[in-house]
Nucleic acid binder design. Structure first.
Length: 580
DNA sequence: GCAAGGTC
């Protein structure tokens, strides 16, 4: 769809504008026919020619056609690295239709949300395309493509030959897929190899004016039974203890930060047992219907210019949270906290229009919309306030503490029903310096417990923290390793865990056993290093050919080793199958 | 048939 209108740009004066849109990348890369699967050895893909292919011919042609009549081109893609590259793709398409469009005639608007004044300011103060960011993305594309395709063909052909996978199956390798799988295998191994250890500790109970309190040992627990026993016997010489400290503290339970994609996915997985893919899909549908803001964002803050009052007012009509929303509008709301992440492209996820959730047919959409609204209302609310009493007890030479919490003001917790913060059992009325008889003082033992298998919210958090994938792709990578048969979801008492399959386990163990020089194909370090090198391209301390050369060199060596040891890799897979 | 990144 193209829109025509007039606008007076300060730099150019009155202009006739045609505005059109793209949807993500316009072009991708591919190998020419001699390098298709089966036509060459996969190792050649590190240096094979690369051709550009158009992904959306209609969008591409429309830009070329419209550009033929244009003197200037203005790019309005997301203001992040990929957005810069898509801007360059648009320029390339426009140049196909109009050879006189020089790169100097390209303007790029810098904007991060669609508030009217912000958009006008962006239109009036355009900058140039950042070719360094464009180079960085081209580099990422090429690394991911060459590494992914070469290793995928190598693994697939090799494992088919050794009958590890079926002829129709594909054993893919990707720079994000394998670290994702690696996290899951790593956790699985830690659970399996866990050896419980016995520990000992002291526990005390006192009673005052009929109210009992359990105190726990400040030392926690120790693994030396005899030592704890000696301490215990020293304590037993006293049948009274002393309250050495009584701490009355006002505590704050912070309202949540503005919502990012990763947080949305983690919470939907935890609260509603929705997969990352499904929660993002539901948010996307709500966005397309105009109910939610753009759902793929890393930004956990809102623009200063945001109309909070108007956004809250729209929710006032709801039967569930309307009263709360109008209360915020009438009695004053808090400006949301600002987190520390900003992708410079989108604000945090928030409701933009009201919808009665009972009119939504999809249960996922109902849950996601309600969650986003309650989260937003919570962001605009006051923190919850409580009073915490902590008593310290000295028994013999040992110290113990007990605490009680009284919630004084629930504030945001009234509307953010997903979080519990409640008044606990109260401590007796103690005074500092008071001596008190020990009603029970015991030495107890316990065992360290194994870590739990991986859950999806934990996996998302790990990927996010290690730079594996982006807000938009984390869910895809999890789905990918699932569909390749590398991992499985397993339900245990209402919690869904992710564990590796024999194949996934065998691949990681096999690759880890190969002893590459300076690389791990299953850990997140290479991806992190690539990310750092891309940043160097962006700031200008390295060039794309330099980075590409270095990275290719490393992967080429790993490829050679993997290729030589294909039989061992296959054996690693059969060994795992035999073991289970 | 292969990646990861956009987006629908």
């Amino acid at each position: 769809m193209n829109y025509d209108f007039s606008y007076r740009f300060p730099i150019h004066g009155a202009c006739e504008v045609t505005m059109t849109s793209v949807l993500g990348h316009l072009t991708g890369i591919d190998f020419p026919p001699p390098f298709q699967w089966g036509k060459c050895v996969p190792g050649r893909l590190f240096d094979a020619d690369i051709v550009e292919k158009v992904l959306k011919q209609d969008v591409y042609d429309n830009i070329a056609n419209e550009a033929a009549k244009a003197q200037l081109l203005m790019i309005w893609t997301d203001c992040d690295r990929e957005g810069e590259y898509i801007g360059y793709e648009i320029y390339t398409a426009a140049r196909k239709g109009n050879h006189s469009l020089e790169i100097a005639a390209i303007w790029r608007s810098k904007f991060s949300h669609l508030e009217r004044n912000h958009v006008i300011a962006a239109a009036n103060n355009p900058i140039g395309l950042d070719m360094k960011s464009v180079e960085a993305v081209a580099c990422r594309q090429e690394v991911d493509f060459r590494v992914g395709t070469s290793f995928t063909r190598l693994l697939t052909d090799g494992l088919r030959q050794h009958k590890i996978i079926e002829q129709k199956e594909v054993a893919s390798y990707g720079t994000c897929q394998f670290p994702t799988l690696g996290f899951i295998v790593d956790r699985y191994r830690r659970v399996k190899s866990f050896i419980p250890e016995q520990f000992w500790y002291l526990a005390v109970e006192v009673k005052h004016e009929g109210v009992a309190a359990s105190f726990s040992w400040v030392t926690g627990h120790l693994f030396d039974r005899l030592y704890v026993l000696i301490l215990y016997q020293q304590c037993l010489e006293h049948d009274q203890g002393t309250i050495t400290k009584l701490d009355l503290k006002r505590t704050t339970n912070w309202r949540p930060l503005p919502l990012t994609t990763v947080e949305l996915q983690k919470d939907c997985s935890r609260l509603f047992k929705m997969s990352a893919k499904n929660s993002l899909a539901a948010a996307e549908k709500l966005y397309n219907k105009g109910f939610l803001s753009y759902p793929r964002t890393e930004t956990d803050s809102f623009p200063a210019s945001m109309d909070f009052s108007g956004t809250l007012q729209k929710q006032a009509q709801d039967s569930r949270w309307g009263l709360y929303a109008s209360g915020l509008v009438q009695n004053g709301f808090q400006t949301p906290r600002n987190g520390k992440y900003d992708d410079k492209a989108h604000p945090a996820i928030h409701p933009v229009n009201y919808v009665d959730i009972s009119s939504l047919s999809s249960p996922d959409e109902r849950k996601v919309y309600e969650y986003v609204v309650r989260r937003f209302l919570a962001c605009c609310s006051k923190d919850a306030v409580g009073q915490q009493t902590t008593a310290t007890l000295k028994w013999g030479d040992q110290f113990f503490t007990a605490s009680g919490l009284v919630v004084l003001e629930k504030n945001y917790l009234d509307i953010y029903t997903y979080k519990k913060w409640e008044t606990t059992k109260q401590l007796p009325n103690l005074t500092e310096g008071q001596t008190i008889s020990i009603s029970s003082g015991r030495m107890k033992d316990g065992k360290t417990s194994p870590p739990k298998h991986m859950t999806e919210p934990e996996l998302i958090a790990l990927m996010d923290a290690n730079g594996i994938g982006t807000d938009a792709t984390i869910a895809d990578h999890i789905e990918k390793v699932l569909s390749r048969g590398y991992i499985m979801k397993q339900k245990q008492a209402s919690v869904e865990y992710i564990i590796p399959s024999d194949l996934g386990m065998g691949l990681i163990e096999g690759l880890d056993a190969m002893g590459f020089d300076n690389i791990s194909l299953s850990k997140p370090f290479m991806r992190k290093q690539l990310e750092e090198l891309l940043q160097e391209i962006v700031v200008g301390t390295k060039t794309k050919p330099e980075v590409l050369g270095d990275i290719k060199h490393i992967y080429r060596q790993a490829y050679a080793v993997t290729s030589r040891n294909m039989a061992a890799l296959a054996r690693s897979c059969t060994d795992i199958m035999a073991r289970t």
